[in-house]
Design a binder for these strands. Structure first.
Length: 270
DNA sequence: AAATTCTCCTGAAGGC
DNA sequence: TGCCTTCAGGAGAATT
């Protein structure tokens, strides 16, 4: 399931293959994704050159001469670059054809999105209220500490809130909290500055490490080259309920926090 | 304002 | 073997 490392892995995979190319066609086979894929794309995109593939949170921003195509992979989406005219497989919902190449979106569960904006994308309603990028200088322990004062929500829900910080999904929230030694159910407003400094550091190193390994493949994520992500081998607690904690040897627990499965070691997370 | 619940969808896993 | 049920999950929208 694509979280920030998977989206960044995808961005790095497709960018060199599609940047600078001119759109020659657009094909929508299934317009019913998270929102309807705009029907006017075949009228506006052909003839425009793809200038840059950027990322904000888990959104991919394909910048063209006269606007931006905003893509989201939902939780089962993947992008591949294939040769033009390659026959589509099941769940291949959308193609952006660039000469003899084709950027193809596959998304079995259809929680993804394809949108078009001619405004600066950071002003788009979907992006306007997003918190800082976790790998940017705007994100720090001080920031988390300040934003969390007075909050009673579990810290895991707090760091998964996109208005607080973007790109920390369910897997990496569990992993970062384990690395920082913080119990996922602890109230966000009752964690010290020192511990938030450690957590911010853990979030960054966890995400960077996952990006370096091509993301995490649990079910259907594939890198652009078709390979799985290898960070799954580095997971310390996620999906390991009942197994031994790699740090203290205690038993890893699973508990639902904020409607999400959470994994933690009750021995070393307080 | 903050927190919770509902919703979209399909594949995987478990039960019988 | 196969059918049926349950569940996961990103994140906006609706609700409390």
């Amino acid at each position: 399931m694509p979280e920030l490392p998977e989206v960044e892995t995808t961005r790095r995979g497709i960018a060199p293959l599609v940047e600078g190319q001119e759109v020659t066609g657009v094909v929508t086979r299934q317009p019913r994704l998270r929102w309807l894929v705009p029907e006017f794309l075949p009228a506006v995109l052909p003839g425009q050159r793809l200038r840059q593939v950027a990322r904000r949170a888990k959104y991919l921003l394909l910048r063209f001469d006269r606007g931006t195509l905003v893509l989201h992979l939902g939780m089962s989406g993947s992008l591949r670059v294939v040769q033009a005219h390659t026959p589509p497989a099941a769940h291949d919902h959308f193609d952006l054809v660039l000469g003899n190449r084709c950027l193809r979106l596959r998304d079995p569960r259809r929680f993804g999105a394809v949108l078009w904006t001619e405004e600066p994308p950071e002003t788009h309603p979907l992006l306007r209220h997003l918190g800082p990028e976790p790998l940017s200088a705007d994100f720090s322990g001080e920031y988390l500490y300040q934003r969390s004062r007075g909050r009673h929500a579990p810290v895991k829900s707090f760091i998964m809130n996109n208005q607080v910080v973007v790109g920390v999904g369910n897997i990496y929230a569990s992993e970062a909290l384990f690395a920082a030694g913080i119990h996922p159910g602890r109230a966000a407003g009752r964690i010290s500055l020192a511990r938030y400094r450690r957590l911010a550091e853990s979030i960054q190193t966890t995400l960077e490490s996952a990006i370096g390994q091509g993301g995490t493949t649990l079910r259907d994520f594939q890198q652009v080259d078709g390979n799985p992500g290898y960070f799954v081998q580095s997971l310390q607690v996620y999906g390991r309920a009942g197994a031994a904690c790699p740090r203290c040897g205690g038993t890893i627990r699973q508990r639902v926090i904020g409607q999400r499965s959470s994994y933690y070691c009750p021995g070393c997370q307080r």
